[in-house]
Amino acid sequence: MPLKEKIAAGKFIILGEFEPPKGADFDSFITDANLVKGRVEALVVPEMANAVLKASSLGGCACLEREGIPSVFQVCCRDRNRLALQADILSAAALGVQNIMAVNGVETRFGDHPQTRTVNDLDLIELIETVQTLSQGKDLAGVELKGTPGFSVGSTIDAGAAGNLLDIEMERLEKMLENGVDYVITNPVFDLRRFEQFVKRVDTSKIAVLPTVLLLKSAGMARYIDRNMRGITIPPDTIRRIQKAPDKVQECIRIAAETIKQVKKMGLAGVLISTVGWESKLPSVLNEAQL
């Protein structure tokens, strides 16, 4: 069942983020994914997050679908032109993928292949339009397709934006809505009070908002994110909790689980749990959050 139907049914959506490997060995990717099979609605497979070369989202989704685990295919403006994007979207549909998520992609200069040429043939809104066009049975050249793909369509939104930037985000959200986006996933959220201010600006009856809950790994990581990542604030209490905890890993799991519970209490559609390399700990987060 596509995500939009689950969202419409009022189910609290749990998504996990599963990065494909940097290499051709998908064993641990598949093993870890099977640990949460049936406990998550779908697994989001990032398309070379942070512009670091990994196996593709489409490849990861194909592996998951083969295991009977629903996936969310990430399509990214950065690396593919309109021909390649449309080809991949059609292929994803044929592989059984029902959920798609459009992203801009982090600039390649921040990744491990800064010598590459970025593509950005389509921007994010145009990419979302493309998914809609394909879902209506035509390609961007207006040619009729043999078999129409159908997806639940998502994208991203910056929940940390403030002032003018937040106004711009809201305009972007409007454009996404006009182009049939069913859900948006935010950047990682730690400060729920601040996040509530963002949620107040969004009509959640029209679009499902799923905050990302990022599993921290250490106080150092938390401090780094708080200082360096635009739009993400980690309360000092959270950092202190990790510092003081005798079992720091368990404390990080507890913090993630508490955030998930609070998000659920806010009445939002669901969460994306991002474990960045600690995918094997996702079951513990779900246990701690009693999900």
Partner: peptide, 12 residues
């Protein structure tokens, strides 16, 4: 050798 495009517009 494979071209380094970072000096082209690709690098911003």
């Amino acid at each position: 050798p494979i071209k380094d495009w970072s000096t082209e517009r690709a690098g911003g």
